[in-house]
Design a protein around this nucleic acid. Structure first.
Length: 162
DNA sequence: GCCAACGTTGGC
DNA sequence: GCCAACGTTGGC
C-alpha cells in the first residue's frame, strides 16, 4: 500500500476535478516541464494519492482526491501533429514526454483554497508555495493529512482504499 | 489583463 | 557553457 501523495495542477476551464469524476480516469498528457515529467516517469506509482489542484481558478485550490491508476508511458499527444501539445522532437522511437494515468478517488466535503493553504503554518514548506510554476509535485504525508483535515475529511488514512 | 517568477532556447 | 531574450504559468 502506498502512502505517497502528489499534487497535480489543472486549470478547471480545461479539465476540472468534476471532469475527472465524469470520465473516471485520464492520461495526464500535455505536461512539458522536465521536473514534472521526471516525477511522473520515475517516482509516481500505481496507488499513490493525488491532490487535484485547480490553478488559474476562482478560487484556486485543492478540489478533490485522485489516485495514480497507471505508471508512466509515452505521452501520445506529443506525437499528434494536430495536438496543441505536439512536439516534433518527441518520437515513438525516442519519446521525450511521458505521463501517468490518474483516476477519480473521492470528492472532498469542500475545496481548500490557496489562501487557506498560505495561511496555515504547517503548510509553509509546500512546494506549491515555494515554486508556483511546478504542476506535478510531491506532498509530505503530514501536509496531505492537514489539507484533508481542512477539507473536512475525517477518519481517512492516506493510502487506504476508499 | 497585468506582470513576477521561472523554464527554455539559441547565439556566441 | 554562459546568458540574454523569450515564452509560459498562474496569482492577483
Amino acid at each position: 500500500m502506498s502512502d505517497r501523495v502528489w499534487l497535480m495542477k489543472s486549470e478547471p476551464d480545461v479539465f476540472s476535478f468534476t471532469d475527472l469524476q465524469t470520465c473516471g480516469r485520464t492520461w495526464w498528457d500535455g505536461v512539458r516541464n522536465y521536473m514534472a515529467r521526471n516525477y511522473m516517469m520515475k517516482d509516481m506509482k500505481v496507488g499513490d494519492w493525488v491532490l487535484f489542484y485547480h490553478s488559474n481558478a476562482e478560487p484556486s485550490g485543492v478540489a478533490g482526491l485522485a489516485i495514480v491508476t497507471s505508471a508512466a508511458r509515452p505521452d501520445e499527444s506529443s506525437f499528434d501533429k494536430k495536438s496543441e501539445y505536439y512536439d516534433a522532437k518527441s518520437t515513438r522511437e525516442n519519446p521525450r514526454w511521458q505521463c501517468v494515468e490518474v483516476g477519480f478517488l473521492n470528492s472532498l466535503p469542500r475545496l481548500v483554497s490557496l489562501a487557506e493553504i498560505k495561511g496555515n503554518k504547517r503548510l509553509a514548506k509546500m512546494i506549491l508555495l515555494q515554486n508556483s510554476r511546478l504542476s506535478v509535485q510531491p506532498v509530505l504525508p503530514a501536509e496531505a493529512r492537514e489539507i484533508l483535515r481542512m477539507a473536512g475529511v475525517t477518519g481517512v488514512e492516506i493510502g487506504a482504499h476508499p
